[in-house]
């Protein structure tokens, strides 16, 4: 009897232990930079939005799509050689920074605005902006609002911990108007609250609004998006401070997408371009030089980024532009040579 008791205790303990240990990541004895962890794990842990059209949405089978998602894939393609080796971790506006700080994610690609505070006291580093937008507002057509000044006294739905939350506080204050914020952490709940009529106005990055109008409204035509943007929101990938190599990779993967567009390298022609006559293209795609080695990667990293994910134009068009249901103009997100702000630094 005693032996059985002991045995049973052992099995219970063993199963508990098995349960606790199985999902835990491999224990590392020594300190290793993020790349090492990512390679050991075989996947990039990428924090993405819970659901914003164009940036990150999951379909019913859990496949993610969007501009932010494409940057997770680009980094995985560069580091691991396969753009599918990403584990997407949806984070809310509130949980995103703790998730990065605590190591739950390796990179934060989630419509995150670069600000001084976040860069300094939150301990983040930001790559080059992958998208420029600003705070926008959606209102019901029936409310008769045409400009910001008509919104006095409105109830505004917004997610907490966002720059948008602070922007509307400053905007309404500067216009001397009252408003009531309704702050709901869960993005979908917040959008639902606006469409069910809890709020008069929904405030978020303007580029996110058309998608919500198109897919979440019962009748999209009942809602309008106010003209103009009301703040500067350069959205970029965030990483933890204290790992410069990882930060460099994020930075140059982003530049590679810009440069590829500028040099006319796309998914289709990247194989031919590898042997093009242009030394800049050859160096970027790794036919010559050793840029990859300098980053601690192999020489094909940028080739894989373009081959598997595409250049910036392709990424944009698939998620916001001509090939997407949203059909948004490039605007600020055009290359600098076309009047936009996208400016890839030289890859030399």
């Amino acid at each position: 009897m005693k032996r059985i008791q002991k045995f049973s205790m052992l099995t219970v303990l063993a199963s508990v232990a098995a349960f606790a240990l199985q999902p835990a990541a491999p224990v590392q004895a020594e300190e290793g930079p993020t790349v090492k962890k990512v390679k050991e794990r075989g996947e990039v842990l990428c924090g993405v939005h819970q659901g914003r059209y164009g940036f990150a949405t999951a379909d019913s089978e859990g496949r993610y799509k969007g501009l932010d998602v494409d940057y997770c894939r680009a980094v995985a393609a560069a580091v691991l050689g396969d753009s599918e080796k990403v584990k997407y971790i949806p984070v809310s506006s509130v949980t995103r920074f703790p998730a990065l700080q605590s190591g739950e994610i390796d990179m934060l690609s989630r419509t995150t605005t670069v600000t001084l505070t976040r860069d300094s006291s939150l301990g983040l580093n930001f790559g080059p902006p992958t998208f420029y937008t600003g705070t926008g507002f959606m209102v019901r057509k029936a409310a008769g609002v045409e400009k910001v000044e008509d919104m006095g006294g409105a109830t505004v739905c917004v997610v907490p911990g966002s720059t948008t939350e602070k922007n509307i506080a400053a905007l309404f204050r500067s216009k001397n108007m009252q408003y009531t914020p309704v702050v709901i952490e869960n993005q979908k709940e917040m959008v639902g609250a606006y469409f069910s009529g809890r709020c008069d106005v929904m405030a978020m990055d303007q580029a996110g609004l058309p998608g919500h109008r198109q897919f979440d409204a019962k009748t999209p035509d009942d809602h309008i998006i106010l003209e103009g943007v009301f703040s500067k929101e350069p959205l970029a990938i965030g990483v933890r401070q204290g790992d410069d190599q990882w930060y460099d990779i994020i930075k140059w993967v982003t530049y590679a997408t810009f440069n590829a567009e500028e040099m006319g390298v796309s998914k289709e022609n990247v194989d031919e371009m590898k042997n093009a006559n242009n030394p800049d293209i050859k160096r970027m795609l790794g036919t010559s030089g050793d840029l990859g080695k300098k980053l601690g990667l192999d020489n094909d990293w940028a080739y894989r980024v373009v081959k598997q994910v595409g250049n910036y134009k392709e990424i944009y068009d698939n998620n916001f532009g001509a090939n997407s249901p949203l059909k948004l103009e490039r605007g600020l997100n055009n290359l600098w040579i076309n009047g936009g702000l996208m400016y890839g630094f030289p890859m030399k």
Binding site: P160, G161, M190
Partner: peptide, 23 residues
């Protein structure tokens, strides 16, 4: 309250946590 957007201590604390990063 934090679940449904009532600005109680946890809700405000959560926003503070996020804005300052000091979890």
């Amino acid at each position: 309250g934090v679940l449904i957007g009532y600005p109680d201590l946890v809700n405000v604390g959560n926003t503070t946590l996020n804005q300052t990063g000091q979890a």
